[in-house]
C-alpha cells in the first residue's frame, strides 16, 4: 500500500503535526518506504492466530480504593508554560 499526499495530510492532522510543503515530499517517501517494508507481514498466514497485546502479565492487578495521591497542586503546575488561578491556560476552546 502506498500513501498519497492527501492521506499523509489527514494522518498529520490526526497526530497534530504540521508538515510544511518542503517537508511533505521527503516525509511521504520515507513513510512509503517504511510501509513497503511492513508489507512483508502479508506473507505470513495468521488465519488461525490470535492477536497479542502484551507479554508476561496474564491479568491486571488491583489497587485498593484509598486516597493516597494528589493534593499537590503546586507540583502539578510547576512545569506548566502558562498558569492562572491554579489552572492550565490554553487558547479559548469553542464548543
Amino acid at each position: 500500500m502506498s500513501l498519497d499526499q492527501e492521506t499523509v495530510k489527514r494522518i498529520a492532522t490526526l497526530a497534530r503535526l504540521k508538515l510544511s510543503d518542503d517537508r511533505m515530499g521527503p516525509m511521504q517517501q520515507d513513510l512509503n518506504r517504511i510501509l513497503h517494508f511492513i508489507d512483508q507481514l502479508n506473507e505470513v498466514d495468521t488465519s488461525s492466530v490470535e492477536g497479542m497485546a502484551g507479554v508476561n502479565t496474564p491479568s491486571m492487578p488491583f489497587r485498593k480504593d484509598v486516597v493516597n495521591d494528589g493534593g499537590y497542586v503546586d507540583k502539578i503546575l510547576e512545569n506548566a508554560p502558562e498558569v492562572a488561578c491554579n489552572m492550565f491556560v490554553v487558547p479559548k476552546v469553542v464548543e
Binding site: 480504593d65 495521591d69 494528589g70 491554579n86
Partner: peptide
C-alpha cells in the same frame, strides 16, 4: 461512587479547589 479515581489514588469529591485532586497520573 468511589473514594479514589479509576486509575489513580487522587480523590474524587465534587467541588474541590482547582487541580487539588490531581495526581501525576491524572495530569
Amino acid at each position: 461512587i468511589s473514594n479514589s479515581k479509576l486509575f489513580s489514588g487522587a480523590a474524587t469529591s465534587f467541588g474541590a479547589e482547582p487541580n487539588t485532586q490531581v495526581s501525576f497520573v491524572d495530569a
